[in-house]
Design a protein around this nucleic acid. Structure first.
Lengths: 184, 184
DNA sequence: GTAAACAAACCGACCACGCGGTATGTTTAA
DNA sequence: TTAAACATACCGCGTGGTCGGTTTGTTTAC
């Protein structure tokens, strides 16, 4: 009869906690820190308890990824709710969602990528980029050029995740356009 | 005396082979496949032999990363050699280098990132993107918008690799510019 | 209404295995 | 002869994963 309060032990809540803890662990302490033991501990559950919700570790990771994509999709939907008609509405929503995701919760593959880019590699890269930017400050300081660099980074990322060809424009055309944007 | 042929066993050649094999292993079979044993096997060397060239696995990975960055830098230098003065010369070189790297050898963090983006996640993402692009085909099919998406991807990537603030323009300004590019 | 029967949720101890790393022996070049 | 360049054998440990039991809540029988 009593409908007012919880009936069980709320297993779904535990499942959610497991997923969140796995994501947080990956983000804050690196992918290598995402061990079933650590996730279980962080969630206040034993390893046996974790394996009651997920058959194996892989399924756990899959669930984390799916969760991230779902959040990203929801963020886009929210934007489209009040700007879903005009030219480029999706792209604007995509941009906004990407930004908002990055703000409060590193998005998507961050769970499996962000930390992979381990600290030493990040330092190497940023030091190198800084040196280059100083060296070419006279010719490459314009903000438009920085944006073009971001676009190049994005193309590079699409390359390594092997984005299917039907989702991308012709390489040479893209390349030409990007160079054009970095020229005039 | 005999100068004509190899003097030793060419340890540097072995070292190079180890680095290349580690990179190839990561690219082709995923980061989890990059074990010292596997790298040694692929290089035709025993584990003991590998540890003779690198004190531990971490140093091996570092060497791989450094190697990738060096290649990237060399590619840029090559372009600058015949286009190193005009407006945006570095950015153009950056773009060209990024493309060329992606062509013959997945670049930079690919060694530690590309594969991390495991197949199932890649499929999830591309399926979702495909569905979205179909759904918004009427408003978001322009190639300019695709480029803006690439830029957004790049910003996202910069976010999760925590690129130092001194290397990036103000977030709001960047966001405004990107949205502007996706509007008109 | 109550107690038995059942099932989900979870614990705790355990195991097998593959990993990074080491210690020591053996070959090769100069 | 000596030192570098490997090979061989081995170890400790952390990991993912298992298994039997225990608690907790829900249903059923009378």
């Amino acid at each position: 009869m009593n409908e007012g309060y919880e009936r069980k032990k709320q297993p779904e809540l535990v499942r959610r906690t497991l997923i969140d803890c796995a994501a947080r662990l990956a983000i804050e302490r690196g992918l290598q820190a995402v061990t079933v033991q650590a996730v279980a501990d962080a969630a206040g559950v034993t390893k046996g308890g974790l394996f009651h919700h997920f058959p194996n570790k892989e399924k756990l990771i899959d669930a984390v990824l799916k969760d991230q994509i779902d959040k990203f999709d929801a963020a886009i939907e929210a934007t489209l709710a009040h700007d879903g008609e005009g030219y480029g509405c999706f792209t604007r929503a995509y941009i906004i969602a990407t930004f908002s995701m990055a703000e409060f919760a590193p998005a998507l593959e961050s769970t499996c990528v962000a930390l992979l880019t381990d600290p030493v590699a990040r330092t190497h890269w940023s030091d190198w980029l800084r040196a280059r930017l100083q060296r070419h400050h006279a010719t490459d300081a314009a903000p438009e050029l920085e944006i073009v660099r971001y676009a190049a980074d994005g193309v590079w990322l699409a390359d390594l995740q092997q984005l299917p060809a039907d989702l991308r424009m012709d390489r040479d055309q893209l390349r030409t356009r990007l160079i054009g944007l970095a020229t005039e």
